[in-house]
C-alpha cells in the first residue's frame, strides 16, 4: 500500500509564475511569428518585383500589354487583374445567395436527418482538391457550357455581355467553377453562424406572430450579418487566389473583353502558367509584381470588410 508521505510533492519544482511566463512567452512568440511571416512575404515580393516596378512604374497597373518576347518585353497587369475580379465577382454573385439559402434551409427547415446528409455532402465538396475541380471543369463542365448554357444565354439574353462564339472555357465558366468551390465554405460558416442565434430570440420573434420568412429576414439576418459577412469574405479570399481550377478553364489569354464567354486570365493562373517560362529577369520580376498586386488586393478587401463591419456594428448595436 502507498503511503501519502512517500509520494513526493512536485510543488517545489513547479513554479507557478515561471510556468505562466513561459507559456505566455511561447504563445506570444507564435503570434509574433505569424506577423513576421506576413511581413516577410510582403518584403520578399516587393524586393523581387522592384526591377519591374522601376521599369514600368504605374503603367504596370493600367496597361494590358503582356509581351514576354526577350528584348522588347512589356508587361501590364490589367488583363490579369480584370480576370481575377471578373471571375471572383461572378463566383460571389452565384455563391452568395445559394449558400445563404442552403444554410438557412439546413438550420431552419430541413428535417434533421436530411440536414445531416446535405451538411456532410457540403463538407465533402469543400474537401475536393481544386485540381479535380479544374479537370472536371475542363472535361465535363466546359463542354456542357459550350453545348447548352452559352448558346442559351447568347440567344435569350445576348448583348455585349453574352456574345461571341461559345467556346466552353472562359471567364463565365471559370466564375461558375469558382462559385462551386467557394459555396461549401460560405455555406458551412453561414450554417454555424445561424446555429449560434439563441433560441429565445427566434422564439420571441415567432411569438410575436411572425412567419419563418419574417423571422429570418427581420431578426435572424441582422443578428447574423457580422458572421455572414465574415463567411462571404472567407469565400472571396479563396476565390481571388484560386489557381488550379481557374488555370484549367479560364483560357489563359491576356486580353480584356466585355463578353463573359471570352477567354481571359487571372493573376493566379498567369503566375501558375508562366513562372516556368520566365527566363528573363524582368519577366520574372513582372510576375512577382503580379503576386504583389494580388497580395495588395486581398489586403484591400480585408480592410474594406473590417470598415464595413464596424459601420454595421454601429447601426445594429453591440451584438451584430
Amino acid at each position: 500500500m502507498h503511503k501519502l508521505s512517500t509520494i513526493k510533492t512536485t510543488a517545489s519544482s513547479r513554479d507557478q509564475t515561471r510556468a505562466d511566463l513561459l507559456f505566455r512567452g511561447f504563445t506570444a512568440l507564435c503570434a509574433i511569428g505569424l506577423i513576421l511571416i506576413v511581413v516577410g512575404i510582403f518584403i520578399e515580393l516587393l524586393m523581387n518585383s522592384w526591377p519591374a516596378i522601376k521599369k514600368f512604374g504605374l503603367s504596370f497597373l493600367v496597361s494590358q500589354k503582356w509581351n514576354p518576347v526577350p528584348g522588347i518585353e512589356e508587361f501590364g497587369a490589367l488583363s490579369s487583374i480584370f480576370g481575377t475580379l471578373a471571375t471572383t465577382a461572378i463566383a460571389m454573385l452565384i455563391a452568395t445567395p445559394m449558400s445563404l439559402v442552403i444554410a438557412i434551409f439546413l438550420v431552419e427547415l430541413a428535417p434533421p436527418r436530411m440536414a445531416g446528409i446535405v451538411g456532410g455532402a457540403i463538407e465533402l465538396l469543400a474537401a475536393v482538391p481544386s485540381i479535380i475541380y479544374g479537370m472536371w471543369g475542363l472535361f465535363v463542365f466546359a463542354p456542357f457550357m459550350q453545348d447548352h448554357i452559352q448558346p442559351f444565354l447568347g440567344e435569350v439574353i445576348g448583348g455585349p455581355l453574352f456574345e461571341g462564339p461559345p467556346m466552353g472555357i472562359g471567364i463565365l465558366t471559370a466564375g461558375i467553377i469558382l462559385a462551386l468551390m467557394i459555396l461549401p465554405f460560405i455555406t458551412a460558416v453561414a450554417r454555424d453562424v445561424f446555429l449560434m442565434i439563441p433560441n429565445v430570440v427566434k422564439e420571441a420573434s415567432h411569438g410575436m406572430g411572425a412567419t419563418t420568412w419574417e423571422v429570418t429576414y427581420k431578426v435572424v439576418w441582422p443578428y447574423c450579418i457580422h458572421g455572414i459577412v465574415g463567411a462571404l469574405f472567407l469565400g472571396l479570399g479563396r476565390a481571388i487566389g484560386e489557381t488550379m481550377a481557374i488555370t484549367f478553364v479560364i483560357g489563359n489569354d491576356h486580353s480584356i473583353s466585355a463578353s463573359v464567354f471570352s477567354a481571359g486570365t487571372s493573376i493566379a493562373s498567369t503566375l501558375a502558367n508562366e513562372f516556368t517560362e520566365a527566363s528573363e529577369p524582368i519577366y520574372l520580376s513582372a510576375l512577382f509584381e503580379l503576386g504583389l498586386v494580388l497580395f495588395g488586393l486581398t489586403v484591400v478587401f480585408q480592410i474594406v470588410a473590417q470598415l464595413w463591419l464596424r459601420r454595421l456594428r454601429k447601426s445594429t448595436g453591440g451584438r451584430a
Binding site: 430570440v201 422564439e203 415567432h206 410575436m208 431578426v219 441582422p222 443578428y223 451584438r319
Partner: peptide, 16 residues
C-alpha cells in the same frame, strides 16, 4: 400569437 403575447426568462431584444 398576436392575441397571446409571450415574455421569456432571458430578455430577448432583437438586433435593432
Amino acid at each position: 400569437r398576436k392575441r397571446v403575447g409571450m415574455i421569456f426568462q432571458k430578455p430577448s431584444p432583437f438586433p435593432m
